[in-house]
């Protein structure tokens, strides 16, 4: 019995020492995973995931605190990429965080705008230009469609306008496949 205890404790001491040494010797700082997750997220900074921006959400995913299906703008495609990166199973978009919408940009009704600058402060990507008491306008190319400017506007002069297809953004459609209805694979 004594031998058994001795042997086991000897093993514990030796291995523990080795592990302890390695933990010091091979310590890793920083988490490159966050960057990779952040690169997948759509950068709308909309906060629908319940985190204040894409980077914090990425951090939360990397720490295992958040699910990968909380990003409505990223859509199914984004979830799929995250699942691939992290080796997790694909999950459908979580309903409590919103639904996938067609890409839209915010448009300010310039007649109604009172120039309060509240939307400028709300815009996470500085896509609204204007000054106090001046009419504001949105730079459509830079708008991510996050809708964060909608609630602060005191006169509700901002609307979301769905982007229409042009010759430049037109995409070839999925070919008709009569044998099997088009199915997304998991």
């Amino acid at each position: 019995m004594l031998e058994a205890i001795l042997v086991m404790s000897l093993g514990a001491v030796v291995l523990g020492a080795a592990l302890g040494y390695a933990a010091v010797k091979f310590r890793v700082e920083g988490d490159p995973l966050v960057e990779k997750i952040d690169a997948i997220l759509p950068q709308t900074q909309c906060g629908q995931c319940s985190y204040p921006g894409c980077k914090p959400y990425a951090t939360a995913i990397a720490r295992g605190e958040a699910e990968i299906n909380q990003c409505p703008p990223g859509g199914e495609e984004g979830i799929r990429k995250l699942a691939d990166l992290l080796g997790r199973e694909f999950k459908p978009l979580s309903a409590e965080h919103g639904v996938e919408k067609p890409k839209a940009v915010a448009v300010i009704d310039e007649q109604t705008c009172i120039g309060c600058t509240l939307c400028i402060q709300a815009c996470p990507v500085d896509a609204i230009v204007g000054a106090a008491k001046q009419m504001h306008t949105i730079i459509a190319d830079q708008c991510t469609g996050c809708e964060l400017c909608l609630p602060p506007c005191p006169v509700d002069c901002i609307t979301m306008e769905v982007l229409h297809e042009t010759v430049d953004t037109w995409k070839w459609k999925y070919p008709v496949f009569p044998l099997h209805p088009a199915q997304v694979q998991s």
Partner: peptide, 24 residues
């Protein structure tokens, strides 16, 4: 053609996202 235009669209989106990240 479908796959190519999807990939192009994605690359465009990615470029926009990168720009948005920079601005953010």
């Amino acid at each position: 053609r479908f796959a190519k235009s999807e990939i192009w669209a994605r690359e465009k989106e990615k470029a926009l996202a990168d720009e948005a990240r920079e601005r953010f």
